[in-house]
């Protein structure tokens, strides 16, 4: 999660939405990404989807754990189901409830860390740029 938060901070420093994600296989980080809505003008580049992109095309996601600083939106939750990722570790779900229960209902193992670093960075961004944050989730906190 430290690496995911580092990616979130990088996005914040670039003026972007501070959500970061990493893919872990065994003990090894195999890909890291962050939200690039602002940086690339790309609405589908959330932290999780950008991380999946950085990993490139893969035959299988067996044994992959996806770490994300913020509870995943429904797009990113859909990506977890689509690729058959079995385990997701979430930094926090206070700034955005996301879809942990939905993922669990579909058999995904979900752990929420309630991490103070993740909470404070995202909370700060939402206060500073509510317009960009609302655009990022299309104003939809609950779907």
């Amino acid at each position: 999660m430290a690496k995911a938060l580092e990616m979130a901070q990088k996005s914040y420093d670039e003026g972007g939405v501070p959500v970061g994600a990493v893919m872990v296989e065994g003990d090894e980080v195999i890909a890291a990404g962050h939200n690039r809505r602002v940086q690339h003008d790309d609405s589908v580049s959330h932290g999780e989807t950008d991380c999946l992109r950085q990993a490139g095309l893969r035959e299988s996601y067996d044994g992959i754990t996806l770490y994300t600083t913020l509870s995943p939106c429904m797009m990113c939750s859909g990506s977890v189901l689509q690729f058959g990722i079995r385990r997701v570790v979430i930094g926090e779900d206070e700034n955005f409830p996301g879809n942990a229960d939905f993922l669990r209902s579909r058999g995904v193992d979900v752990l929420i860390l309630n991490d103070e670093g993740c909470k404070s960075l995202m909370g700060r961004f939402i206060k500073e740029r509510p317009d960009i944050w609302f655009e990022d989730i299309a104003g939809r906190e609950e779907v």
């Binding site: 429904m74 859909g78 990506s79 689509q82 299309a138 779907v143």
Partner: peptide, 13 residues
Amino acid sequence: PNWLEAGTIVQFG
């Protein structure tokens, strides 16, 4: 739609 597409449709409303 597949799950990624369906999730995206729902999130973006």
